[in-house]
């Protein structure tokens, strides 16, 4: 594995290995001294062409915990706003000796282009590209699900396991969501069954070719007793058309409420609630559900650091070519 560009590229073995290493990384993060010397002397560049808080901080924390040098670049206030191309930015980073480039870009496919054109010799990690993929988010979601559904919440207890036979409902703005696409592919690779729930206007073209089921009715999907419910953010910044009549109607039909969580936990007491953040409280999820006992939203952030440490470690620590 040279790059981490999409969750759909990962084989079951690669995904399980990433999750296993992430569990060991998570265990080291419970110690008093969290820093490990594995990537000493390597340089990780965070290249963020699009706004991000948690992914950028998470990658930065992960690289620093592995003792790598971190350079964070955001497009705002850089030469990109003067019109510099992706290629020239990449060549500049190459000249500075970047061993890994973590890239977030508003255009789908930008990380692929960076990896395949040979502009940089380093490993490329996709931190979200347009509406395409966000593989480390899917990895941290599956990490969280595996830890709780298979490992009973204990780190290391689920080593080597996948999510065979588990059922996950993903509800929300699938159309604009790279998180949904990455999760559908990764969960499918790991043997889980995924049901996407959204209003027809918020489903992408070609969703019938994805390895999942599709439903327009959240209560019916929850009635089938899934093991986990993942709420997606309604991406207000990408809403340039009327996708649903009103926010109130959306919350009523597709919002994750305390009542819906109560109905779900009545069927599956072990059910997990995930949200990739940032949350629009009151729109796709109520505060009561988000802060409720089944919610893993805060733990997802912690797990994100461990998963990104594992990805950086596996891509950077090995044999030089």
């Amino acid at each position: 594995m040279k790059h981490l560009l999409s969750a759909a590229d990962l084989t079951r073995e690669q995904a399980v290995r990433l999750l296993d290493v992430a569990e060991q990384m998570a265990a080291t993060q419970q110690r008093e001294i969290k820093k490990l010397p594995a990537l000493r002397g390597r340089t990780v560049v965070n290249l963020f062409f699009e706004d991000s808080t948690r992914t950028r901080l998470s990658f930065e924390t992960a690289a620093k915990r592995l003792s790598a040098d971190v350079i964070t670049f955001s497009a705002k206030g850089s030469s990109v706003s003067k019109g510099e191309s992706l290629k020239d930015t990449a060549l500049t980073l190459q000249a500075m000796g970047a061993d890994a480039v973590v890239i977030r870009h508003a255009s789908s496919g930008a990380p692929h282009r960076l990896a395949e054109k040979g502009w940089t010799s380093g490993a490329v990690l996709n931190a979200g590209d347009g509406t395409h993929e966000h593989p480390t988010q899917a990895l941290l979601d599956t990490f969280t699900l595996r830890k709780h559904l298979v490992g009973g919440g204990q780190l290391g207890a689920a080593a080597g396991a996948d999510l065979a036979g588990r059922r996950v409902v993903v509800v929300g703005d699938v159309l604009h969501s790279r998180v949904a696409r990455s999760n559908v592919h990764l969960l499918h690779t790991l043997g889980a069954r995924v049901t996407l729930v959204a209003p027809p206007t918020l489903l992408p073209l070609g969703v019938e070719t994805w390895p999942c089921e599709v439903s327009y009715d959240l209560d019916a999907a929850l009635g089938e007793a899934p093991d986990a419910l993942m709420a997606l953010r309604v991406q207000l910044e990408r809403m340039n058309a009327a996708y649903f009549p009103s926010a109130r109607e959306y919350s009523r039909r597709y919002g994750v409420t305390a009542e819906r969580m109560a109905a779900l936990t009545a069927l599956t007491p072990h059910a997990q609630l995930l949200h990739p953040g940032p949350m629009n409280r009151g729109l796709e999820i109520t505060a009561e559900a988000a802060d409720g006992p089944r919610s893993r939203v805060v733990e997802q952030v912690t797990n994100g650091v461990a998963v990104r440490m594992a990805a950086l470690y596996l891509l950077l620590a090995g044999e030089e070519e």
Partner: peptide, 21 residues
């Protein structure tokens, strides 16, 4: 005690997965 992350030959060998400590 897992020592993988502290090895000085990480870059000379195929990637090793860390073991539990």
């Amino acid at each position: 005690l897992d020592v993988t992350m502290h090895r000085d030959d990480l870059r000379r060998n195929p990637t090793r997965a860390p073991e539990p400590t």
